[in-house]
Simulated scan of single mutants.
Amino acid sequence: MTLLSAGRWATLRLVVAAVGLLLFPTAIQHLHINVGPNLSPILPPADDPATAVLAVEAQLGVAATLASREGVAYPGRFFVIPAALAGGAAAGGFATFRHYNDDGQSSSLSPARDAADWAAKDARRNRTVGAVSHVPVLSLARLLDALPPSVTVPLLKTDAQGWDLSIIQSAGRSLRRAERIMAEVFRGDILYDLPPGVTNDLDKGWVPYMRSLNYTLAKAGPGKYTDAVFERVGEP
């Protein structure tokens, strides 16, 4: 049996204490979370070395591109988790993402209503027909609870092809860690065939749910699908 010195025991205890937490450089005090960034993620502010970005991307090829591109451009300030987020029965399992568009850069937990048109376009270009990603599905609560308590979340942005509200709901009260939330919302459930119980409707779903957690709607663009911004009222 090998005996450990007091110093090595202290180190071991620190490692054990860190299990389940995401570790970031000690300089990082603030973390923007970008769910479904595709190839246009939020970038760390150039003039604020204390702020980093965590991208959660379900398409493995896109996640790899982000890690090799932004991860290299912003060392220690841009991180990627290759996974999907969702609520309800979907969380805690796995999902297969089928890639649409001629560059394979669109996907969703739900089938696209014009998937046949996208697939035909891909076939004509001999591009990413049949490309898939198999990834774990996590709840937003699990992600937020894995952040060090000292790290704040000034912005949480989602673009999840209809599952945005489901992701937000999966956070429960842990959502209060986010000061500001930006999400793609619908006026009516369009674009994707969402399963029963899943909605992304701004007026019927988002506004009442966010009000229940003491967030206020700061702005929303016009049209059938757009970005909406909610701001936290009070402290976490």
Rank of each mutant, 00 (worst) to 15 (best):
Gly7Thr: 07
Ala131Asn: 09
Arg124Asn: 06
Gly162Leu: 09
Ala178Asp: 07
Thr26Cys: 08
Pro154Asn: 12
Val233Cys: 15
Leu144Val: 01
Leu202Cys: 14
Leu155Asn: 02
Tyr74Arg: 00
Pro41Gln: 06
Ile42Thr: 11
Asp145Val: 10
Leu14Gln: 15
Asp189Glu: 14
Leu31Ala: 13
Pro49Asn: 05
Pro82Val: 05
Ile28Asn: 07
Pro44Cys: 02
Tyr225Cys: 10
Leu12Tyr: 09
Leu202His: 09
Val137Lys: 03
Thr11His: 13
Thr65Lys: 00
Leu144Cys: 02
Ala67Glu: 15
Val135His: 06
Asn34Gln: 07
Leu85Thr: 04
Tyr209Gln: 06
Trp118Lys: 12
Leu31Phe: 13
Val80His: 03
Thr158His: 05
Met182Pro: 00
Ala17Glu: 14
Ser40Met: 04
Ala218Gly: 00
Ala73Asn: 10
Ala220Ile: 04
Ile190Gly: 08
Tyr74Pro: 01
Ser139Ile: 00
Leu3Glu: 15
Trp118Glu: 14
Gly88Asn: 09
Leu4Pro: 00
Leu191Cys: 03
Leu22Asp: 10
Arg124Phe: 12
Asn38Ser: 10
Ser5Val: 13
His134Asp: 10
Ala91Pro: 02
Val185Glu: 06
Pro49Asp: 14
Val16Arg: 07
Ala46Phe: 05
Tyr74Leu: 04
Arg211Phe: 11
Gly93Thr: 04
Ala73Gln: 14
Ile42Ala: 13
Asp122Thr: 06
Leu175Pro: 10
Gly87Cys: 11
Asp122Gly: 12
Pro44Met: 04
Asp117Lys: 05
Arg180Asp: 04
Asp227Val: 12
Ala146Asp: 03
Gly162Asp: 10
Arg8Phe: 12
Trp163Ala: 14
Gly71Glu: 11
Ser40Pro: 01
Ala91Ser: 05
Leu23Phe: 01
Gly104His: 02
Leu66Arg: 00
Gln161Gly: 03
Ala160Leu: 05
Thr226Gln: 11
Tyr215Glu: 09
Trp206Arg: 08
Ile81Trp: 01
Val151Met: 14
Met182Tyr: 03
Ala146Met: 12
Ala146Trp: 07
Gly104Thr: 05
Ala50Cys: 14
Ser108Pro: 03
Pro154Trp: 12
Trp118Thr: 01
Pro25Gln: 07
Met1Pro: 13
Ser166Val: 06
